[in-house]
Write a protein that binds this DNA or RNA. Structure first.
Length: 666
DNA sequence: CGGGACAACGTTTTT
DNA sequence: CGTTGTCCCG
């Protein structure tokens, strides 16, 4: 691997360093890194040194005297931002670590905490994650009597999807239903009333969902010129990564942030747009020059990651896209083996193939941390996970279900959220229902009893003095005491979580006899995570916006530390990453493309880009595999054909191999 | 009114 | 297969 010499961290003025930009960047990268003022759009192909370019640009800005705190770096994940800043710091000194940044949502959160009053929020607002939001919608739906009246009224997740889609596509629920959800037209009036009730409920209880974060930031920038100017002057240079995955709302935010200076660099790749379900559109990237007149466009087309045979395959896949893309990747790594396409008899054979080949690669000296298995949907790896455990191959899984979303972790979290925002009805409800002998009706009643409390102290006092008696009376007193305990500001977050866990564990043991130990382990893990935080507010914000993705899977063998872990990941979560060897499993029509997305042509195109993203993660070795004749319960069909994306490709791009089982017992 | 037992339903990707 | 909704008993 390429080595990098660290410069001393001493507090020497950054401008004393002379970085040889021209020598270390190619021509296009150089142009992108050194064009500091005015709008710039960088079309950066996969593996084209995009991060490197951004890093050098940050360095250049700092070198030219810009205060790092005035640079705002909006990236897709916080990890990506940290990695970039770390590398920039290596170049020009630690001051780069003060560069502001994060995801749009986390940035919005930070800004809105400071300007909460301006947009009509209390500063202690609680962020609802998707399932919290669903709980609220469900409550309101029941309240409105929509659950009885008509059985076919959409479920909470469907309802929320519509609400969210309307926001992220900058349209209205009415138009969306008319255009896309025609089968729900009969329910339109009820949906609109529910939407209204949902909005009012959130306002009343000081709650915001993911979409509100973006909307409110946009509103702040649009409707409050003073605040907008101040923000814009604070962040004199704005850089946005993965621009193809932003939506109109985010584009408006960028526009607003740059209102006083137009110093914006957007970096993206239209071939890698894979978040349309979140309202993103690759057209956003095409519209950038219209939004920022005078935009300079730079294309990075030389790939430094993959071998030519891998790129040939990726180019061929994307070349068959309905809409032509803006560039073709090339590389100087001409040699390398052709990607393999493996036909397996069934899912078991596929899993065993991956295990065996991973072990062989390890024999050849490829560390596990340089190998990844990618798949369309999280559950596609279940069988493989069992097989890996059997083979003692340690792995980490990214994407899909997060441990923070498990019921027991959310239960503990709810206690903390009450302390942060005593008006948080969702959390109160959740916590109250945990108590023995207390059901929905009583929970409602108790909550109404303490809803008017001015602060937490008053709320807990009312809780302990709840007039009606029942089996739960003692429990209410205990709950009140725990809440008072953890409300103490002197207690660090880790200790608060530990107290709640102590209170909660006995209840957990009663409810979940079977897998209690595993759940208890999750809670221990949670205490550890909380221990890294200094304030409760930042812990809660992170749990909603940047939840830890490492699951405490069984596969996490402690001895895996030395050579790392094999990565299993959804393709969405693999974005921006690279490995020496990459497996893409389940290359079966109906799985990839997913059977949900084969009706609509645009959906199929997005699946194609998804495949493009997965192929371009590989540096040296690429394996595509598919089982044949697998019955799929979900769709009720037999999956027998390889993915339409690999069928009918030009000859010679893939080496087709049949996986044969020697049979017998292993 | 709370909670357990059972039936029915729908099944992706992420902040 | 796991979640969500319904029904009925204590």
């Amino acid at each position: 691997m390429e080595t990098y010499t660290l410069r001393p961290r001493a507090a020497v003025a950054p401008s004393r360093y002379r970085i040889d930009y021209a020598g270390e960047l190619n021509e296009a990268q150089y142009e992108a890194a050194t064009t500091l003022d005015g709008p710039v759009l960088v079309i950066a192909g996969a593996g084209s040194g995009k991060t490197r370019t951004l890093v050098y640009r940050v360095a250049r800005l700092v070198e030219s005297g810009v205060n790092p705190a005035q640079i705002l770096l909006l990236t897709f994940t916080r990890k990506a931002a940290e990695e970039m800043l770390r590398r920039a710091a290596e170049l020009v000194g630690a001051s780069c670590e003060r560069v502001a940044g994060g995801t749009f949502h986390s940035f919005a959160n930070t800004v809105l905490r400071r300007h909460a009053r301006t947009v009509g929020l209390g500063p202690g607002f609680t962020i609802l994650d998707r399932s919290d939001a669903e709980d609220v919608v469900n409550l309101l739906r029941t309240r409105a009597g929509l659950d009885r009246k008509d059985r076919r009224f959409p479920r909470k997740n469907a309802i929320l999807e519509i609400f969210s889609m309307a926001v992220n596509r900058s349209t209205t629920v009415r138009l969306l239903v008319e255009e896309t959800y025609g089968h729900l037209y009969d329910h339109l009036d009820d949906l609109l009333r529910l939407e209204d009730a949902y909005a009012r409920y959130k306002r009343e209880k000081n709650l915001v969902d993911y979409d509100d974060l973006l909307v409110l930031l946009r509103d702040l920038l649009r409707d409050h010129p003073d605040a907008a100017d101040q923000l814009s002057r604070t962040y004199r240079y704005v850089m946005v990564d993965e621009y193809q995955d932003t939506n109109r709302l985010q584009a408006e935010i960028v526009r607003g942030l740059a209102r006083t200076h137009d110093n914006v660099m957007a970096v993206g790749d239209d071939s890698q747009s894979i978040y349309s379900f979140r309202g993103a559109t690759f057209r956003n990237i095409m519209d950038f020059p219209a939004l920022f007149p005078g935009t300079r466009i730079v294309k990075l087309e030389e790939n430094y990651r993959s071998t030519q045979p891998i790129l040939d395959l990726a180019n061929a896949v994307i070349d068959r896209a309905a809409e032509k893309h803006t560039k073709v990747l090339h590389t100087r790594k001409a040699d390398g083996q052709r990607p393999l396409l493996l036909q397996c008899t069934d899912e078991q054979a596929q899993s065993r193939f991956v295990c065996q080949r991973v072990l062989e690669l390890r024999e050849e000296g490829v560390p596990l941390s340089e190998i990844a298995v990618l798949f369309r949907s999280s559950f596609h790896s279940f069988d493989l996970e069992l097989e890996l455990s059997r083979a003692d191959i340690p792995f980490v899984k990214r994407g899909g279900f997060k441990f923070i979303e498990t019921a027991h972790v959310k239960d503990v979290l709810a206690h903390l959220r009450i302390v942060a925002n005593p008006r948080d009805a969702v959390s109160w409800h959740r916590v109250l229902l945990l108590l023995d002998g207390l059901g929905p009706k009583t929970a409602d009643d108790v909550f109404n009893h303490l809803a008017e409390a001015a602060d937490l102290a008053e709320a807990t006092a009312r809780l302990a003095a709840y007039p009606r008696r029942g089996a739960y009376t003692k429990e209410l007193g205990r709950l009140a005491r725990v809440l008072e305990e953890i409300a103490d500001d002197r207690l660090p977050p880790g200790e608060k979580v530990a107290r709640v866990v102590g209170f909660y564990t006995p209840m957990l043991r009663n409810v979940h006899r079977e897998d209690f130990p595993k759940r208890e382990k999750d809670l221990e893990h949670f205490i550890t995570i909380a221990g890294r935080y200094r304030s409760l507010a930042s812990l809660l914000a992170d749990m909603a916006l940047e939840p830890p993705t490492d699951s405490v899977g069984d596969g996490l063998a402690a001895d895996g530390e030395d050579e790392g872990l094999l990565t299993l990941s959804t393709i969405h979560s693999a974005k921006g990453l690279e490995w020496h060897a990459v497996f893409v499993i389940w290359m079966v029509d109906g799985r990839f493309p997913s059977y949900h997305n084969i009706q609509d042509a645009d959906d199929v195109e997005e699946e194609r880009r998804l495949l493009y993203v997965s192929l371009t993660r590989a540096k040296q070795h690429l394996y595509l595999s598919y089982p044949i004749d697998v019955y799929d319960r979900a769709s009720g069909m037999v999956l027998g054909k390889p993915s339409r994306f690999v069928e009918g490709l030009p000859e010679g791009l893939l080496r087709e191999v049949q996986v044969v089982d020697e049979g017998g017992l292993r």
